[in-house]
């Protein structure tokens, strides 16, 4: 059963009607081709209208869509010979983060990403893409290896946030994330981060320090979920829609705030409509990033990374 989002309903209704008329034309003597053509024109216009004017809250729904492609989907589209490696060598193997090596354009790279499931069973296995400390430590282990063997690091960000659980706190969720931020700041290989779904707070940032940060058009990146913000600011989680609008969490917002480098367009109706097309669009941007970043000396790379982050923020002087 395909998940239908609230704002898409007029499109789906019209599509159903067209299908009905087509069936009717096929089954009966009456020819409705003219009406069908008219409706199809209207459908195209309606799609342009709706998908071309998505509100922040619509994009939140899109970013959370159950069929939205995940890290592993993109890995299989973009890379060859992907070999997944497991475990943090300290506690366990967190399935909410996948990591491994692969070829990108015939050169070895390290690939890491949050991994959520598309159905309940897979989501339970993946803990809904919400990592524990061992996930971040697994990621760090692979990034250190990338540094050692001089491979670029590519991360895919797609998480509601780091898991808020007792065991996660006991094993040092804060430290695990903090350590990744600090170490990612210092690796002398290019790091490209791509937000493909939800970029939820510190849990997202734990894989998100890099030289280039890109976001898919309908992904979000925020300090807290809209629901969380609404309940803290206005003591009412149902004001999430309002929070989503106030907090500037869409790819275009972040581009405007100079937090990200590029917005990667999505096919009409979202990434899940055509994963191949989506992967191609990511490929264009990723290749460009890797090519550009590979030109820098390690000193230049680190200096540029510092410049990038140094300039994020807004304040005034008295």
């Amino acid at each position: 059963m395909k998940q239908i989002l609230e704002f898409e309903k007029p499109i789906i209704n019209l599509k159903d009607k067209i299908a009905e008329l087509k069936k009717f034309t096929a089954d009966s003597e009456i020819d409705l081709t003219e009406e069908i053509n008219k409706l199809e024109d209207r459908l195209e216009q309606l799609e342009d209208d709706i998908y071309g004017n998505l509100k922040p809250w619509d994009r939140v729904q899109m970013a959370r869509h159950s069929e939205r492609p995940t890290t592993l989907d993109y890995i299989h589209q973009l890379f060859t010979n992907f070999i997944e490696f497991h475990g943090d060598r300290r506690y366990g193997d967190d399935q909410a983060i996948v990591a491994g090596i692969a070829y990108y354009k015939d050169k070895p790279v390290t690939v890491i990403g949050h991994q959520r499931g598309k159905d309940t069973k897979e989501n339970i296995k993946r803990n809904f893409g919400m990592p524990h400390p061992e996930g971040y430590r697994k990621a760090l282990r692979h990034m250190e290896q990338a540094q050692k063997f001089n491979r670029p690091i590519i991360t895919f960000i797609d998480t509601k946030g780091a898991y808020p659980g007792r065991a996660a706190e006991e094993r040092g969720q804060s430290e695990a994330i903090a350590k990744n931020l600090m170490e990612m700041a210092g690796f002398t290989v290019p790091i490209v981060c791509i937000v493909i779904g939800e970029g939820g707070s510190g849990g997202a940032l734990g894989l998100g320090i890099g030289d280039h940060i890109h976001m898919l058009e309908n992904s979000t990146y925020s300090v807290i979920s809209p629901e969380g913000a609404a309940s803290i600011l206005w003591k009412d989680a149902s004001l999430a829609k309002k929070a989503a609008e106030s907090m500037k969490i869409t790819a275009n917002d972040l581009k405007e705030l100079n937090v990200i480098d590029q917005v990667i367009p999505e096919p009409k109706g979202g990434a899940h409509q055509d994963i191949k097309v989506q992967a191609e669009k990511i490929d264009v941007v990723l290749e460009q990033s890797i090519r550009e970043l590979s030109k820098y000396t390690t000193d230049e790379l680190l200096e540029k990374r510092w410049e990038k982050y140094k300039n994020i923020g807004d304040y005034k002087l008295l």
Binding site: M182, A185, G202, I209, V223, M247, Y309, I312
Partner: peptide, 17 residues
């Protein structure tokens, strides 16, 4: 919003240096 989150990044990069 996101600018607050990015201060975690900014301070971490400074501390790494």
């Amino acid at each position: 919003g996101i600018l607050s989150l990015m201060q975690m990044a900014k301070t971490s990069v400074a501390i790494k240096r």
